[in-house]
Design a protein around this nucleic acid. Structure first.
Lengths: 207, 207
DNA sequence: GAAATAAAAGGAGGATGCCTCCAGATAAAT
DNA sequence: ATTTATCTGGAGGCATCCTCCTTTTATTTC
């Protein structure tokens, strides 16, 4: 399923199957506005954090507030739609790192990349907050991607016996993401790197 | 100085010095309302998080919204006033732990206590966010207390050579506090304990 | 004790944000 | 060209924020 998102990928099949109610092509203006809103929201969120006014986003995008709500019934739906790409990209990086680096190093690099994403997006932090906090159903699929990624890397490193970890790896992400929402931007980037090193050292020491 | 707080401790001296404009005793109702508001806000914040409506707090306290704003010009001022006690208590615990435990253990215990405070207050998290994030001038003195506390404990443990730490200890608090604002409540309590153990192990390994 | 005065109380009001709802506009289907 | 499902845009109800200013009240002065 697609969460609360409105777009559905393939309607053509349905039209062929049985004689269900006639399915018509989605209107062009709808899709256009949907993309326009996401684009606008992305920049506004990046500027003002993900608590920016939805009415302002609609205003800047040049559409009515009703249009925004039609496409994205909740703030979460909008935020989620925006960052779905980023999330997928992050998850993909885990795969790629796993294939090209030794387990522990892959984990370390991915954690660094995770923090970079969170910091640079500045607004993604709140997203990941909810994502990783599991408060919103909407993020379920994105959350699964991230959880899968971190578990993959940790499991690999644990399998070789290089590290031990007696906790949910997700909680490490919570700390790293949480720190970003506290500390202001780029400063956290550096701090998190140090923190990651200490954590890795700590997991090694637990052997 | 007292931040933006309204209360000033001793006015008597001023009355004696020189013949400045006559200074009068602070009005009784003012101080009464100030305390009443803090008491009310404390419970409301505990219930609904620190984003609860200020008008609701005023309503429950039985005073006008104007009165609330007179005493606490900003939301931060109110929140800060409420948690100043808690912060001082936390800082005091550092002293006491330092005197009764070996350095590393004292540090560990204090970090655990820090997390407990943040989690149980549930609303203190946002406080500490800003506190430790340094976004608000209002928190300056409370922040100093916390910073002093953690520095004391870390320095002691570093001095014995038991651990090494190449980063600002404050950033560790940021991670721990940030995690609390992400994860919901008690769950983070446990996770943070594990995290603290790993961090300590990591700092030991850096020796 | 009464008048004067500095300070506090309280709420009306303008601004903004959230979200719902629906009349009118418009793109796809016939 | 007409029909029809879908989309648009904004008015409107409600909540909150914060400011400003009038009225009230505690303290001081006489």
């Amino acid at each position: 399923m697609e969460g609360a998102s409105v777009y559905q990928g393939d309607f053509s099949e349905m039209a062929e199957k049985s004689d269900g109610p006639t399915v018509r092509k989605p209107r062009a203006d709808a899709e256009r506005n949907r993309l326009l809103l996401m684009e606008t929201a992305k920049t506004v969120f990046a500027d003002k954090g993900s608590s920016a006014s939805l009415e302002e986003i609609a205003r800047i995008a040049g559409v009515g507030i009703g249009t925004l709500y039609r496409h994205f019934p909740t703030r979460d739906a909008l935020v989620s739609a925006i960052y779905r790409n980023e999330t997928a990209q992050l998850a993909a990086a885990a795969q790629s790192l796993a294939e090209t680096h030794p387990p522990v190093e892959a984990l370390r690099l991915w954690l660094v990349q995770f923090v970079d994403y969170v910091v640079t997006k500045h607004g993604m932090s709140e997203v990941l907050d909810s994502l990783v906090g599991g408060t919103s159903e909407l993020y379920a699929d994105s959350a699964d991607l991230i959880i899968g990624a971190v578990n993959l890397l940790v499991d690999r490193a644990v399998a070789t016996g290089e590290i031990r970890l007696a906790m949910d790896p997700l909680d490490i992400l919570r700390a790293l993401a949480g720190g970003a929402s506290v500390s202001c931007g780029p400063a956290w980037r550096e701090a998190a790197r140090q923190l990651i090193d200490i954590l890795i050292a700590g997991m090694r020491a637990n052997r």
